[in-house]
Structures are given as structure tokens and as C-alpha cells.
């Protein structure tokens, strides 16, 4: 599957969900599929897309939150799956874009090119609703089912190494500010 195709399909079904995109190509194609203020784009902190999404989900239990992470990033922080399995946030959906390589640094194979299976790891971490998607229709079906149900879910997508179709401006203050306003959390700013 191609990442931008999945991102465009995903963007087409979103309403007011918060979406946290991990560093590199993951958030590049999230942006390229159509910017929305409810998107948060990471510029560093590799491996923290799912923890950030968990934090948003805890703060906003009424909102659906989606974290999207690449395979290399998730490998850096597999422990977060155990935390999410334990906390079991009802409103959190996790998507892994797995091209089995560190695409942005030159395509070095990642552990998922050999033996690592993120869906199996997630199930073992307590996220029972974890599935590999077979094609773009199946991907959207799984995401839609996850968004309709209570409890964390993880959807894996095996993608190719097509380059990202765009990139957001690397302006962290603006990214964060727009995201917080979209979350309705901007009111928490200001002097005490």
C-alpha cells in the first residue's frame, strides 16, 4: 500500500478527531493529505506519537484521538504499547505505517523487515483489537470500526517507500498553537 493513499482515505473520513503524526514521512503525508488544525505534526521526539496521542486522549475523553507512527519510531518506544494496553483509553486509535525501513535516513531495513510484528506485539501488550490491514479498503474499514467502538485499537499498514507528497512548515509554535485552539484548550494559556 502507499502511505499517501491511506492518508487521503483517512483524511476523507475524519471529523473532529485529533490526529498526532510521528516524525518524518508519517506526518509529511498526514499534512499532504490535507491540513486540518486538529493535526499535530512532530518535528523530533522520535517515538512519541503514541504517547502524545495518549495524553490528548486522557485530557479529552469525549474526543476520538488517532496516533500515527512509523515502524522505526515505534521500535524506539515499544514500551508505550504496554502503557496504552494497561490504561486502555476508550478513545484512542493507533495506526502503524510499516515500510520495514528507516526510509528518511536512506532506507536501512528495520527490525520489522526481519522478524518484528507490531500487531503481535500490540496484542501481547494488551491491545486486543490489533489487526493488519490487507488493502486500503480494509484499512478504512478497520479504522472506522475502531472509531466506532470503545477501547484502544491498533491498525497496521504495510506500505511501500514512495516519497512523501508534501511537508508541513517546521514551525513548532504555530503547529502547537493551532492544534490547541482546535482542541479548545487555548483558554488554558495566560498568566495565573
Amino acid at each position: 500500500m502507499q502511505r499517501i493513499v491511506l492518508m487521503r482515505r483517512l483524511a476523507g473520513m475524519l471529523r473532529d478527531e485529533a490526529v498526532v503524526g510521528g516524525i518524518g514521512n508519517t506526518n509529511f503525508d498526514l499534512f499532504a493529505a490535507g491540513h486540518r488544525p486538529q493535526n499535530f505534526y512532530m518535528l523530533g521526539s522520535m517515538g512519541l506519537a503514541f504517547p502524545i496521542a495518549l495524553g490528548v486522549a486522557l485530557a479529552q475523553p469525549q474526543r476520538r484521538v488517532i496516533g500515527i507512527e512509523g515502524d522505526g519510531s515505534l521500535l524506539m518506544n515499544l514500551g508505550c504499547l504496554a502503557t496504552i494496553g494497561m490504561v486502555a483509553p476508550p478513545n484512542l486509535t493507533l495506526i502503524v505505517m510499516d515500510n520495514a525501513s528507516y526510509q528518511i535516513t536512506g532506507g536501512q531495513p528495520s527490525a520489522s523487515a526481519a522478524t518484528a510484528d507490531f500487531v503481535a506485539v500490540a496484542r501481547g501488550a494488551g491491545i486486543a483489537r490489533s489487526d493488519w490491514s490487507q488493502d486500503p479498503d480494509d484499512f478504512i474499514r478497520l479504522v472506522d470500526a475502531a472509531l466506532q467502538s470503545s477501547g484502544p485499537a491498533l491498525i497496521g499498514a504495510r506500505i511501500d517507500e514512495a516519497p512523501a507528497a508534501g511537508q508541513p512548515a517546521r514551525d513548532p509554535a504555530q503547529i502547537r498553537d493551532r492544534f490547541m485552539q482546535a482542541m479548545g484548550a487555548r483558554k488554558d494559556f495566560g498568566a495565573p
Binding site: A18, A49, I52, G55, V56, A59
Partner: peptide
């Protein structure tokens, strides 16, 4: 750090 950052951005 990620969890705390997300929580802050969610209010």
C-alpha cells in the same frame, strides 16, 4: 514527556 505534552495540548 510525550504523555504530559499531549495532555497539556488537550487542556
Amino acid at each position: 514527556v510525550g504523555i504530559c505534552a499531549g495532555a497539556w495540548m488537550g487542556g
